[in-house]
Computed example of a mutant assay.
Amino acid sequence: MTDTEPTQMRAEVAASWERSAAAGVDITQLEAPIALETPDLRGLREAHPLARVFPLLDDVLGNEVRDCGAVMALADHEGTLLWVCGTPDKLRQAEGIGFVEGSNWDERLAGTNAPGLALATGRDAFITRDEHFRSSVRSWSCAATPIHDPFTSQILGVLDVTGGDAIVVPQTMAMVRAAARMAEAELARLLPPPPTPDRATGLRLVLELLGHNEALITIDNGQGKVSRLRLSRRHSEIVALLAAYPGGLTGDELAVMLYEEDGGTSTLRAELNRLRGLLGEDLLASRPYRLTAPLAGDWLAVEAQLAAGDLRSAMRGYGGPILPRSTAPGVVRLRDGLAASLRQGLLRSRAAELMSAWTRSGWGRDDYDMWLAQRAVVAPTSPMFALVEGQLARLDRDLA
């Protein structure tokens, strides 16, 4: 550790440093990479939804940051800076670290920084001086927050304020957050709302199983009424299995997948009746047992991304094993199948940053083969190499 690196570090910053190192960012790299040249940048800005609220943000926030000797930046959802505003002298200083329009500040390209961290976590991010991964940025501090589509909640981009020590106060983040929420409200007024679902489409379900011991289920009636439930352990298992078999299951088939030992048919009928009472008569049919509404799920998205070869999106969406504490045989099979598919994809990928995300997790921390695969692709000069070697030594001791 150099004299300029922090002796203590917040957990979210440490995780970002590890992601940056795993992605191959050089700590001595002077500038962030340029992602778009001027003609392409101009076209992207004109077409981007944030173009509708940039004048508002510049008026509300831009003038404030100019007065305190900072710059305001607005990036898209990939981390490319679309607009950078400030006084001429501050903009010239920002050019020295590549903080310019068209540069990309995704932490996998530019190292730990507030816009990149906000994109990676989906939350407010404040990075001060030595918390930056790259040495060249450590005289700066920055505060950023995502801006969301008001109708879909997807991240459209990130609003950032970057400057010197004067911005390292709680009011800075409050000001950035307030401006972002104002922009979202203005987008809700300016953007056309999504089409209203046809009444005939009826109910829709969204099921969240990854990393949850108890499933979260969202029920949308297609007419603006949305309810959200946390199911019991057994109900979670039943819904997960019915979702995995859209054609339906007989009572006997479902019982075999739920119970580790024979029996439990009468108990299962009682559980299904209670579940029907929670979900509603229209959602759970019998003979065979099946869910009757269109269903989306977090694990289904990961499966689809893996099938499409989009390993990065699959890893980003994988919040953990399916119902990790369940011992129901059918759920165990679903859980192990998805984890094995994702793990094999990572082992073949030779992408150190993706493997690192796996080994930083609770479920992948002791995955010896994944640590070995990382060591094979991480350069010996990388700061990650010593970490990987240390973890392999730990596992060697534990396994011995």
Score class of each variant (00 low, 15 high):
165 D>S: 11
243 A>T: 08
133 F>I: 02
205 L>H: 02
139 S>A: 10
358 W>I: 09
340 A>R: 03
120 A>L: 11
79 G>Q: 05
251 G>V: 05
119 L>K: 00
68 C>Q: 14
320 G>W: 08
69 G>P: 05
383 P>I: 02
17 W>P: 07
225 K>E: 15
342 L>R: 02
352 A>P: 02
135 S>F: 08
88 P>N: 05
339 A>N: 03
325 R>T: 14
241 L>M: 07
151 F>H: 15
398 D>H: 10
3 D>G: 06
322 I>H: 01
247 G>V: 12
96 G>R: 06
201 T>F: 13
6 P>E: 06
319 G>T: 12
126 F>C: 12
231 L>N: 07
130 D>K: 14
355 M>G: 08
143 A>Y: 10
130 D>S: 15
29 Q>F: 02
391 Q>C: 08
156 L>M: 12
119 L>E: 11
99 F>A: 11
315 M>L: 13
3 D>C: 07
315 M>D: 11
387 L>A: 10
22 A>E: 03
174 A>K: 09
290 R>G: 00
308 A>N: 12
326 S>G: 07
382 S>A: 07
348 R>N: 14
298 D>F: 07
329 P>N: 06
308 A>V: 10
56 L>A: 08
235 H>K: 12
223 Q>A: 13
148 H>M: 10
344 Q>Y: 00
397 R>C: 12
200 A>S: 15
219 I>C: 09
99 F>C: 13
367 D>G: 00
369 D>S: 11
232 S>R: 06
358 W>F: 07
31 E>Y: 00
144 A>H: 06
307 A>L: 11
100 V>I: 13
205 L>R: 03
318 Y>Q: 07
375 R>W: 13
234 R>C: 02
24 G>I: 07
279 L>T: 05
54 F>R: 03
71 V>M: 04
153 S>A: 09
200 A>T: 14
41 L>I: 12
279 L>W: 02
71 V>G: 03
265 T>L: 15
129 R>W: 04
36 L>Y: 02
217 I>K: 04
256 V>A: 10
3 D>K: 12
214 E>W: 04
259 Y>E: 00
54 F>Y: 10
83 W>A: 04
148 H>S: 13
154 Q>V: 08
35 A>E: 02
237 E>H: 00
48 H>P: 01
117 L>S: 10
244 A>H: 04
204 R>V: 05
323 L>W: 04
110 A>S: 10
94 A>K: 04
332 V>A: 12
196 T>S: 14
181 R>F: 12
42 R>D: 11
109 L>D: 10
379 A>T: 12
277 G>T: 10
23 A>F: 06
106 D>V: 08
61 L>I: 01
366 D>E: 14
141 S>R: 00
175 M>D: 05
45 R>F: 11
78 E>P: 01
362 G>D: 14
41 L>T: 07
317 G>D: 13
101 E>C: 08
